[in-house]
Design a protein around this nucleic acid. Structure first.
Lengths: 201, 201
DNA sequence: AAATAAACGACACTGTTGTATATTTTAATG
DNA sequence: CATTAAAATATACAACAGTGTCGTTTATTT
């Protein structure tokens, strides 16, 4: 406990972030207090505040950790047709949505929704939105280059369209459960419309 | 021998609800306290608690009031073609989305997102979702009856699809502003895909 | 055993809630 | 029009939950 390596400190923080994440997933952002995280981590108040200034700080660290996992969020292979790859990606999204309760969705939504202050961290949301838009956009353009698609609308529009829809489906599903929103059916509609948007017939 | 009219009481409540609504629109649900509403209404703590038990109670009244305005939410006329009516409705939605900051969207989202307790009032969200789904569904079926459409997917699916998309667009727009999400463009894509879903070609 | 830094937990402070009590307003009555 | 009792409002208060700080304790290294 005294004089200790850098590695120890990092490890400690990683543990705390893990504990925090667990709590945030379970309780969302608004309902979570520092105390909850301390309890989950089995650590004292003083120790906690040695590593984090406040709850917002903790959450931002959790966010950072969570983001890293899907950096390589949409890897396209050039060897294969694009469309099947998109379809596979959509199936992945279905998995994501169906496990929405084990994700940070609620906490994130609450965090960015609740406080005007976070409009400063606004850049985060905004940036992430742009990143994803662009990633999808590129895939679409690639498909067009390869003469596989004939985009009926600009790739940017299509990309944003996909995101809006998926976001809506996620939140509705979180609120209402999968039975009511019928995730699979909805995604198959998205597929249907995407075909119309991507192909000339 | 008692005093005071019924009408007075109702009027009073309506005023309080109005004041509360104003605050909720400005600050959302989570950041709003009873005090904020009392201040806005220029009323004392004691008076406020005579009419409402707690913040949740106030919010539910505000919700009720707000819902009434769009009861006749999607009136279809039988004389006219359905499709133009849907298009007009979508234009209305654009207005709604573009004025999203003057709406209760944030407060509602926060309210239903934040607290597990509200899973009891869950019925509200769930019910409303079903109502809207059914309303749209009926319009679609009417169009099919009139041989105007040839639905490429079940009306239920299409209806839910529309809602998911619009919800997503609303929340994204609230977060990011209209410039980034390009509401109009997005809605025109929705229109495009809807045509594909409604018509055989 | 001296030095050091992590960990602990008590503490003071804040903002908010809901209630209890005091005061004012109201309209029916003599 | 003065009286009066109930209703409406105002004010003060206790309780609480959460925050961030700070002096103290603990355990290891040198």
């Amino acid at each position: 406990m005294p004089k200790v390596s850098e590695a120890y400190k990092e490890e400690k923080i990683r543990n705390l972030v893990q504990a925090a994440k667990k709590v945030f997933i379970k309780k969302g952002y608004v309902q979570t207090s520092m105390q909850d995280i301390m309890d989950e981590a089995g650590i004292s108040r003083g120790a906690m505040y040695r590593y984090f200034n406040n709850l917002e700080h903790v959450f931002l660290e959790v966010l950072r950790e969570d983001d890293q996992k899907d950096v390589a969020f949409f890897e396209v292979s050039n060897d294969e047709q694009i469309w099947p790859q998109i379809q596979r990606w959509l199936e992945m999204q279905q998995q994501v949505i169906e496990n929405i309760n084990q994700s940070l969705l609620q906490a994130k939504a609450e965090f960015f929704l609740t406080s005007q202050q976070h409009k400063d961290d606004f850049s985060y949301v905004s940036q992430r939105y742009d990143e994803i838009t662009e990633a999808i956009e590129e895939v679409l353009m690639l498909g067009e280059q390869k003469k596989e698609f004939q985009l009926q609308q600009s790739p940017e529009r299509i990309s944003r369209y996909m995101i809006s829809f998926l976001n809506g489906l996620m939140l509705d599903t979180f609120q209402l459960g999968m039975k009511q929103t019928k995730v699979q059916e909805q995604l198959s509609i998205l597929c249907f419309t995407l075909e119309k948007l991507l192909y000339k017939e």
